[in-house]
């Protein structure tokens, strides 16, 4: 019965959301906004459940005196600190909460993001090894585009930037659009399967 109710809800909601997209009436727009607000409320509670889950898992690790005890302790202390700062000092500009966010969390996030540059280099090194015909094409195209994007390319030959533009705007864009068309078809198909009750992944595979 629980599954049947979930499937019927998905069908009704799916049909309604499809129909409202084509309407200009204020009634449909209001209903759409209300549903979006419901989604945000549901997500807020789900987030709370998620955070409690994090605290439970890392609390167990901390108590169990495992090798990850130190990291679990840092995480729990971080969660507790932000909750206390948020409730006592607020989250507006100049608050301790925002200070910790700007001076601790933001630099840590920037550090992780900066790793991307090194990962791009190592992935490019592996990807650009011409082990096959396809790899050779990839290497040649990448070299042309890389050279065409820097002053050195124009200095070597004025044709290199033009060729780089052609690679980006003709074969690469054509391939990208072909993939996008396929993805679009796949997404619409999956959505319709959800509305028809054929795709029930949201029930956890039941």
């Amino acid at each position: 019965m629980r599954d049947r109710l979930a499937v019927i809800t998905a069908i009704v909601a799916g049909i309604f959301m499809t129909v409202q997209y084509f309407l200009t009436s204020t009634g449909a727009a209001t209903a759409y906004r209300t549903i979006l607000a419901w989604m945000q409320i549901i997500f807020s509670f789900a987030l709370l459940v998620g955070v409690l889950g994090v605290v439970r898992i890392h609390g167990k690790r901390f108590i169990a005196n495992s090798s990850e005890r130190f990291y679990a302790g840092v995480l729990l202390a971080g969660v507790a600190l932000m909750v206390v700062l948020g409730f006592t000092g607020g989250i507006e500009r100049g608050s301790p909460f925002l200070w910790v966010f700007d001076n601790w969390q933001a630099p840590m996030q920037s550090t992780v993001f900066s790793l991307l540059a090194f990962y791009v280099a190592s992935a490019a090194y592996r990807g650009f090894r011409a082990r096959s015909g396809e790899s050779a094409v990839l290497v040649i195209a990448a070299l042309i585009v890389l050279l065409g994007r820097v002053p050195l390319g124009e200095w070597l030959s004025p044709y290199i930037p033009d060729t780089a533009d052609w690679v980006l705007h003709v074969p690469a864009l054509a391939a990208k659009r072909a993939i996008l068309i396929g993805i679009g078809l796949g997404m619409i198909s999956t959505s319709i399967k959800v509305i028809l009750g054929l795709e029930r992944t949201y029930l956890g595979g039941r």
Binding site: I15, V19, F22, L23, T24, S25, T26, G27, A28, I195
Partner: peptide, 25 residues
């Protein structure tokens, strides 16, 4: 789906929704 989508204007009117200046659909 095939019927309801094109007939959205009728559905909206039955719901009592107020139409925008340029029509319901």
């Amino acid at each position: 789906l095939c019927v309801v989508v094109p007939c959205g204007s009728v559905l909206a009117q039955e719901m009592g929704a107020s139409a925008a200046d340029d029509g319901v659909f």
